[in-house]
Write a protein that binds this DNA or RNA. Sequence first.
DNA 1: ATGAAAGCGCTAACAC
DNA 2: GTGTTAGCGCTTTCAT
Lengths: 328, 328
Amino acid sequence: MTPQRPTMNDVARTAGVSLKTVSRVVNGEATVAPDLVAKVRAAVESLDYRPHLGASMLRRNDRRTRTIGVLLDDVSHPFSAALHRAVEDQARARGIHVLTGSLDQDPVREQALATAFAERQTDGLILAPTGGDLGHLEAHTGMPVVFVDRIPAGVTGDSVVSTNVSGAAGAVRHLVAQGHRRIGYLGGRRLLSTARERHRGYLRALGSHPGPAVHDLHDPTAAERAAIAMLRAPDPPTALFTTQSMVTTGAIRALRRLGRERSVALIGFDDFPLADLLDPPVTVVAQDPSRMGRTAATALFERIDGYDGPPREIRIPTTLIPRGSGEL
Amino acid sequence: MTPQRPTMNDVARTAGVSLKTVSRVVNGEATVAPDLVAKVRAAVESLDYRPHLGASMLRRNDRRTRTIGVLLDDVSHPFSAALHRAVEDQARARGIHVLTGSLDQDPVREQALATAFAERQTDGLILAPTGGDLGHLEAHTGMPVVFVDRIPAGVTGDSVVSTNVSGAAGAVRHLVAQGHRRIGYLGGRRLLSTARERHRGYLRALGSHPGPAVHDLHDPTAAERAAIAMLRAPDPPTALFTTQSMVTTGAIRALRRLGRERSVALIGFDDFPLADLLDPPVTVVAQDPSRMGRTAATALFERIDGYDGPPREIRIPTTLIPRGSGEL
DNA sequence: ATGAAAGCGCTAACAC
DNA sequence: GTGTTAGCGCTTTCAT
């Protein structure tokens, strides 16, 4: 026996007006006589009426739910979390709500959540693609999609990504400028465009003399092991370049374990909290996840509002932040 | 001229069956002849039909949207982000989606988002209350609410919070056991139950001899200034207890600035990434945001499923993690 | 086992 | 200015 929530009809009855008049008042249409407005307001108040957005949206001509979906690697990861927050802020400014999901790089979950969001009629989607086949995601779900962080194989929408190649190349050149000639590379999954691009930047900076490289790392423990192995091998590198924060922290732990944190230089791609409080402070190529989120949200809203130009690839600049570990 | 998404009616027509048969197939009701099922499946496939959850939900008897709202301080803060992630995982296991929002401790936004979620018919809400007046939130929105992290003034629902008093008291006793007699307190907003409870624990451990205290801090810069002032005052404390991670990092910066990080002990409430890599490593009272999120989600789902017992106050234990800074 | 009709809460189109 | 009618896409109820 839960007390039913009141409907517009209930309000109309208690206010002694027609359903449509209530609708007009609730939607702020100006063409209602002041005394009726007052009556309706009073009835809304007394019944504690709240409109049913689902029903409204069903009948409305512009079938908008004013909801978007945001699918990221892991909402608890600092990069994803900052991006999520920025999207949320842009959305709030437009009275739009955000459904979230963490994909953990799982293409199955990606597909499932994108479909589920489509069934909920989200107006659009911001997606950090897992690298699985997205096929014709946009045609399939019927909603505009903006990709963030990574560019999927079969592009069907705008993407907002960091300047990975130049950022990585800049970092490695910075190490070269400090006199390093043998620079190790510790990178993430090559399935993803980020790892490939950052590796390309690394190679570009080193020309025909690249150092040792380990690929497809994505948790700190594996990165730590890989770094230790690399530093213990014959002719070890004098500097390390890591392509994501999980790998960077693994490398830091490795250097500590070997007592080499003051002798082997390190630059990590992607900034992380407290990097400046470590010893030595960690030099990074900082991304700007907030700006990426803002930009992606803006691009998505343009698409939702009907912009129909060709897919855009928007690059967000990175910044080298020298703090010490890259200047050894 | 956007191509309309197909409806059940379209599917029925192309499959040559009635609307209702399509509905049965889509909802997996067993009472449909295999050949009709096949026809419907084919039509669904060829039209790329996807059911409209909003319409379904409107007509259905159990008016569930299978969506919950999660309102936290800031989805990009590590504590909130970890909690969010845990809620999401529990929700996914039940096929439930999550709408998120960051409140930035703003009661106006809290009220607005809670109302907006109610209008979207979310089945329930997990809320880190801002400290503003919530009045009869549950009665008002008509959905169950579970509070996390903090207990609001006028309780109207379950709450899931850390063992703040005993956690704080344990930390301070730990400092006393190291020989400290003068222990400074740097705390967050007393409007919130967390700060009050942690201060109570601090007082309990010190009996009638509390040290200097500064309250109502909530950003690192203010905390840093307060810590510097406290340490420069006459008869400065030999140890600090901080009640949240933002304040803790502020205190760390202050100790560094004064060159006292190896002479003044520090224990912070709430763990944070890389605390173990700092120098000295930071001793903390770790909360368990994942468990809090899991527990809150479970409690909420119980309420959604009709459990109607009295409000529950669930305490999640904290853990003292000695790493060095608290053992000076 | 299948279908026809009614209606969820609301807005659009068109009266009055 | 206000009310009436129809119907969004779907599930229910009830008939066949």
